[in-house]
Design a binder for these strands. Sequence first.
DNA 1: CGGTATCCAGCGTGATACTG
DNA 2: CAGTATCACGCTGGATACCG
Lengths: 145, 145
Amino acid sequence: MPSGPFDIALIASGDPAECPVRDVLVHFGGKWNTLILLCLGSAPHRFGGLRRRIPHISKRMLTTTLRDLERDGFVSRHAFPTKLPGVEYRITGLGHSFLDPLYGVLVWADGHHADIRRARAGYDVKANGQARELSERQPSTHPTR
Amino acid sequence: MPSGPFDIALIASGDPAECPVRDVLVHFGGKWNTLILLCLGSAPHRFGGLRRRIPHISKRMLTTTLRDLERDGFVSRHAFPTKLPGVEYRITGLGHSFLDPLYGVLVWADGHHADIRRARAGYDVKANGQARELSERQPSTHPTR
DNA sequence: CGGTATCCAGCGTGATACTG
DNA sequence: CAGTATCACGCTGGATACCG
């Protein structure tokens, strides 16, 4: 099924605000979104718990990303009004259903990581070789500034 | 299968350059990457052909994104040295295999678009309501600049 | 046709300090 | 504990002009 063409117009259609797919792709673009979703997918977490499980995230980015995910209905926030504030984040049904396609990407990434690195290395040596070739023949067409 | 937890460390591990998953997620993050991949997935395209099929893309962004995809082995470039330059871009085996997880995401996005919009609208009215409530009680704690 | 070069605005992200 | 406020900065992407 996934082998058929997908309608380009669905993504590229005029107004970006009207595009369904971009709304979703945003959650891949963010640096922390997938991490947080993955964490919450395994179990509910408190704010501090998330910070501990996600190595380099700052409080600010954790907050803003959680707000984003909450806004789009991927996670829900539950604050219990104890003396010291305690807040738990859980994944919603919508968020959970999103884990399936996400895992698909992750599995692919894991399986093809080596291929990508190899392609990249090959491309880079080729690019460097050409640059050297050019600069040897024409010391400076563009005077480097 | 996709229901099991995925190792967070795989994504969050110390050095970002060492992370396999981020290498792939980059291709979702870019504004044009998925569009181009989708186009080339249906058939090989010339540079100009891609520009025509992807509404608002500039020459610069088309070039840079194609280079990115080429570097990572998703597409290949074939220039035939005719009088007027002609260049064809094709999707590679690696790129084609990536279409499967990509379609997974796209299908999900299409199916849950309405849910996201609804969640977003609900969140926004709630946020606005709270803001109004606050400003009515305390005219200006922070003098708004 | 298929690009490069250059400049620039905006946004995403990080660091730090303060708050209830 | 769970944030918010503020500033700084780099990178992405857009506009424009030029090139072989």
